[in-house]
């Protein structure tokens, strides 16, 4: 019985991240529109977009290979699995021990690897420019992310996200400089990884200024729907990660019963709303930077994360 309940909670987690992700994007877009005094599309517009894309035909370039057609499903699957492994409304889910935080980072790396390859498959300059800039951004964002993971792991004594979240919710955390540095670095990495302003502009219409959009320029129809859904999931994943590590209130182990699950779910929705509003405000307030300023931005994140880790290493003996 307990196993069935655990599996049901895990299944609910997988479904809920899938269903929530478009709503989150719709909400961010709505807030951004309201901030610049536009009406903006409805919050459920991303669902409509996905359905519309699925109904449309796929236009494949003449020389697109099998890799191009398989990649959307791989990207989606890797991102979905990663998103399902981050605690949202409860920790200690049935499969949470299958992968720790390092694995989650690497799963996103797998998704990006295939996305960059798909960008190069057709052999247009836009795909190439997108892929080469994406790997440049990733080559700085990924080590920064891993160093953030190191900091968290050193504080909590584990890379297992459920354990980290439980530790961060307990009173023994205290105020630490390293955690502050990690939070700032994590936000910077999240902005870059999700192709948000100031690193990339998700709403641009000029191919040359895009990174993520340039890579997927050749995609259409159901393939594009999968990739879009994966990118929605990625934003949800990063917000879940930030909220479960740095805002762990209301997050309980799944074994404590339905009541705490309900509290966890309500708290989770509240945290997502707050983070979405913060993201919208931030994006409205800053301008996109030139692509070769991005390494400075991410280099700062990398240095902050390294400094945080270094402080933890050194402070162990004090």
């Amino acid at each position: 019985m307990a196993v069935i309940f655990d599996l049901a909670v895990q299944g609910a987690q997988m479904l809920s991240v899938l269903l929530l992700a478009p709503l989150l994007i719709g909400f961010v877009r709505k807030v951004k529109a309201r901030l610049v005094r536009r009406q903006g599309p409805s919050v459920i517009q991303p669902y409509r977009d996905l359905v519309r894309l699925m109904r449309k035909e796929v236009v494949l370039a003449d020389n697109a290979s099998w890799l191009f057609r398989v990649t959307p499903y791989l990207i989606f699957a890797a991102t979905w699995v990663a998103a399902a492994l981050v605690p949202t409304f409860a920790t200690g889910l049935e499969f949470s021990w299958a992968a720790d935080l390092i694995v989650i980072v690497a799963l996103l790396g797998s998704a990006r690897f295939f996305q960059a390859l798909a960008g190069m498959d057709v052999g247009t300059s836009f795909g190439g420019i997108g892929a080469s800039r994406e790997v440049m951004i990733a080559s700085l964002a990924e080590p920064a992310m891993l160093l953030i993971v190191f900091s968290l792991a050193l504080v909590a004594g584990a890379t297992q996200l459920s354990t980290v979240a439980a530790f961060m919710g307990s009173p023994q955390v205290g105020l630490r400089v390293s955690l502050g540095m990690s939070l700032i670095a994590l936000v910077m990495v999240a902005v870059a990884e999700n192709a948000r302003i100031p690193v990339d502009n998700p709403a641009t219409h000029l191919e040359l200024t895009m990174v993520h959009e340039a890579m997927i320029l050749e995609y259409s129809g159901r393939h594009l729907a999968m990739i879009e859904l994966a990118s929605f999931l990625k934003l949800l994943l990063y917000m879940s990660l930030i909220s479960c590590v740095f805002l762990p209130w209301g997050l309980e182990s799944a074994a404590t019963g339905p009541r705490s699950l309900a509290i966890g779910a309500a708290a989770y929705l509240g945290k997502l709303a707050v983070l979405a509003i913060l993201l919208a405000v931030f994006e409205t307030a800053v301008a996109k930077m030139r692509v070769f300023r991005v390494p400075d931005f991410l280099g700062a994140a990398l240095m902050l994360a390294l400094l945080g880790t270094l402080l933890l290493f050194v402070s162990r003996s004090l």
């Binding site: 796929v58 236009v59 494949l60 247009t124 050749e218």
Partner: peptide
């Protein structure tokens, strides 16, 4: 559930 239609065309060159 989604559309099966698929068409081959030349790549988008802007």
């Amino acid at each position: 559930f989604a559309s099966h239609a698929l068409r081959r065309g030349i790549a988008w060159g802007c």
